[in-house]
């Protein structure tokens, strides 16, 4: 419990800043909805003039622009990108900082097993991400309702929840990367290329339109067009995502308990 609280305290400021920044971006975009919805026909026309391949790559769903969740899904692609960076930073940093800040000699010689240390760090990561998403929703839901009181809340929340799923995937990936590597000098030097790499693969995949490519990048596990049309997630992707998270965490435990902690 003491490790958990210590970790949570040291990441509190960071996740609050991330949550508020992402919520503010979403809110600003949502505030445009009323202005645009009155001219939705003209707006749709403008979008239609964009080549289809580019539209797909950028995630514009022309057909569903007339509803608030559909409109929201455009900006949400990019919020996912931010959220993924936050989650991966957190995952890498929470494990690797004992090595990079050279505090491993302190923490790992205390009378606690490595598994308990990793438990505490995982819980702190999870709680940070849950808190991020709660702050995010606390801002975006009232803004959405103010723009359109008749907003389909189920769809709005389903789209919002994908942020949490994607974050879980990137956080577990970050933890695994941190556990496997001997020492990470700069967290963003690892997280940014990784996250952008997956994002670009996702964009390219949308242009090709190949379903198999979607399995390669967490960004495409939740297709807004599918969610908007069916009010459901695609089971095969949810299962794959959950499996990847469990596998990454399980591997992290196996490696972390046996890892040699070297002097600096």
């Amino acid at each position: 419990m003491n490790i958990f609280l210590h970790e949570l305290k040291s990441y509190r400021k960071s996740f609050i800043i991330w949550a508020i920044s992402m919520a503010a971006t979403a809110a600003l975009f949502l505030l445009l909805y009323q202005a645009i919805s009155s001219d939705i026909a003209a707006f749709t026309k403008v979008l239609e003039s964009v080549p289809e391949a580019l539209r797909n790559a950028l995630g514009f769903l022309v057909g569903s622009l007339s509803t608030l969740p559909g409109f929201y899904s455009i900006i949400f692609t990019y919020l996912l990108l931010c959220g993924a960076i936050q989650a991966m930073n957190l995952g890498i940093s929470i494990v690797s900082r004992e090595v990079s800040a050279k505090t491993a000699d302190f923490l790992l010689t205390k009378p606690v097993s490595r598994a308990i240390i990793l438990n505490a760090k995982l819980m702190a990561t999870l709680v940070s991400l849950v808190a991020t998403n709660l702050i995010f929703l606390a801002v975006t839901v009232p803004v959405a309702l103010s723009q359109d009181p008749g907003t389909n809340m189920q769809l709005f929340l389903m789209i919002s929840a994908t942020l949490f799923f994607v974050q879980l995937m990137f956080a577990s990936l970050g933890i695994l990367v941190a556990v496997v590597t001997r020492k990470i000098k700069s967290v963003v030097a690892v997280s940014l290329p990784t996250v952008f790499g997956f994002f670009i693969v996702g964009m390219l995949g949308s242009v090709i339109g190949d379903k198999a490519v979607r399995y390669l990048t967490p960004f495409k596990y939740f297709d807004p067009a599918y969610i908007l049309a069916n009010s459901a997630y695609e089971v095969s992707f949810v299962v794959t995502g959950a499996f990847l998270i469990v596998a990454a965490i399980a591997m992290s435990y196996l490696i972390y308990v046996r890892k040699d902690i070297h002097t600096v």
């Binding site: 040291s10 800040a101 009378p111």
Partner: peptide, 28 residues
Amino acid sequence: PEIAKDIGYLPSEVFYYDKMKVIDLLRY
């Protein structure tokens, strides 16, 4: 973990969480 209860260890170079106060670190 069991053994560590009764061990005090001082490494050659000491590093602690920079942003903490000494007393908070020692309490931790």
